[in-house]
């Protein structure tokens, strides 16, 4: 298969970027999208041009490192990460535009690689259960209904790639934040810190400069882990209740 790539090139975080066009020739249709980029990069290097920098690591759809916006869609067509996109999804001769995730809170490092430490900061704000190593009671001492454990797992499946914010017209990270709040908040072990966690994560998300959720649901459409936006509703509810309880002094954050 042959394609024409329009690739965003940007030398550094402070320089301005531009699109460059490269041919992608003789690409096997079993190749993944990233393997196609590998081939193009090898050709570029052979021609003495610097390769296109893009993030990737596990290449099996779980680490969340790959982060390309392909023809305007984070992770490209279909459900799943960029690394799990295969060239047979495209038509021979297609022009493919590749951009980085464009979110103000994810500054571009170079070319297609962006800095997503903003998501780590949200976790630092409260995305954890304080459980000192060695202090845990027996794992079966607190039974958890299967439906609760399953729902928590649905939320915990988030791979932290940031595609939700990249797809959201407002660059909102609510799907990410709500998934973490639900993953931990649903479990009995997470209840004691629930209000604190919820409020602190939302405040940090706001401070970092992510946009606000407008219920567009583009996030859940691109989410490679299939996280449901119903977790956002849950977060809205819990945040408002925790903030109200804080206001009247029923809890402290």
């Amino acid at each position: 298969m042959n394609f024409t790539l329009r690739v965003w090139r940007q030398d550094g975080p402070t320089t301005s970027g531009r699109f460059e066009e490269y041919p992608a020739k003789n690409i096997p249709d079993e190749a993944s999208f990233l393997e196609m980029l590998d081939i193009v990069n090898e050709e570029l290097e052979k021609a003495g041009k610097e390769s296109v920098q893009f993030d990737h690591d596990c290449r099996e759809g779980i680490c969340g490192m790959c982060s390309l916006t392909i023809n305007g869609v984070p992770h490209g067509p279909g459900r799943g990460t960029t690394c799990q996109l295969y060239m047979r999804k495209f038509q021979d001769g297609d022009v493919i535009t590749i951009e980085p995730f464009r979110v103000g809170a994810f500054p571009i490092i170079r070319d297609l690689a962006v800095n997503r430490t903003a998501l780590d900061k949200v976790i630092q704000a409260g995305g954890f259960i304080t459980a000192r190593t060695g202090s845990a009671p027996d794992a079966n001492s607190v039974p958890i209904p299967k439906v609760i454990a399953d729902e928590s797992m649905d939320a915990a499946a988030c791979i932290g790639c940031g595609a939700c914010a990249a797809a959201c017209p407002n660059s909102s990270a609510m799907l990410f934040v709500s998934a973490k709040a639900a993953h931990l908040g649903l479990l009995p072990q997470g209840k004691p810190e629930n209000e604190r966690r919820t409020v602190r994560m939302v405040r940090t998300m706001d401070e970092i400069g992510f946009g606000n959720c407008s219920n567009y649901y583009a996030c859940e459409a691109v989410c490679p882990a299939g996280i449901s936006a119903s977790f956002i509703a849950r977060l809205n509810r819990q945040y408002t209740s925790a903030a109200a309880r804080e206001a009247v002094g029923a809890t402290t954050i």
Binding site: A139, P143, K146, D150, A156, H183
Partner: peptide, 21 residues
Amino acid sequence: NIIDQCVAQGVPFAREYGGLL
């Protein structure tokens, strides 16, 4: 101890209907 620790920190292991692991 690892399993105890992981459950305490919120790892959503698979469970049976009775709520046990």
